[in-house]
């Protein structure tokens, strides 16, 4: 059956945006549990200490910067500045791909200093938690590719539903970015 368009104009916040925030709450729980598992396991002793590859730390700047471009893109769409909108969207995509690559380099580096996936769980966590984070980011990249596709194929015209779609994907992108900031601070200071 075709979906019912039952979004009545009585709502201030669009239901898709609400749904996104609720979905983010679920993701927060997932990472809260993974990082608690880290703390619990660390507290039990027999824990290998090592220096986090700097790739992971500098990559934080990449993801934060991509959030900025993403927001610029969204704002430009709202203002009707389609050129900046497209340019910033593409930049975000490129930054997302750079982030993915640098994460991979980070793991390679970890492996080369002898901290392997299968060794002491302290190392395994650095593969698994950022790995699950990256999986969520790749979901965001797929959304970005869709957004780029729309940006270049649809007419240069403002529409409410396009705005909502962009708002949802942009918010998700910021969310995943801030999640990484939390994770990196967690790994550095815990």
């Amino acid at each position: 059956m075709e979906a019912v368009n039952n979004i009545s104009n009585r709502n201030k916040v669009h239901p898709y945006v609400v749904a996104l925030w609720i979905g983010c709450a679920a993701i927060v729980m997932m990472f809260a549990s993974l990082t608690s598992a880290y703390i619990v396991r660390k507290g039990a002793g027999n824990w290998l200490e090592f220096k986090l590859p700097s790739y992971f730390i500098y990559n934080t700047l990449v993801i934060l910067f991509s959030s900025v471009t993403r927001q610029i893109s969204y704002n430009s769409f709202k203002k009707g500045n389609f050129k900046v909108y497209k340019l910033a969207l593409i930049s975000t995509l490129i930054l997302g791909i750079i982030f993915t690559t640098v994460q991979y380099l980070g793991w390679k580096n970890l492996d080369s200093i002898g901290v392997t996936l299968t060794g002491n769980p302290s190392g395994s966590f650095i593969y698994v938690i950022p790995g699950i984070h990256l999986a969520h980011l790749i979901g965001g990249i797929l959304g970005l590719i869709m957004a780029c596709f729309h940006a270049f194929s649809l007419p240069e015209k403002f529409s409410e539903i396009r705005k909502v779609r962009l708002e949802v994907t942009t918010t998700y992108w910021h969310f995943i970015g801030f999640l990484w900031v939390y994770l990196i601070l967690f790994f550095i200071y815990s």
Binding site: A25, M29, M30, S33, L34, V128, I132
Partner: peptide, 14 residues
């Protein structure tokens, strides 16, 4: 469900 099932998934992933 929304707050507890993701925790189960974390457990499953590990």
């Amino acid at each position: 469900g929304l707050l507890s099932f993701p925790v189960l998934v974390s457990g499953f992933f590990l």
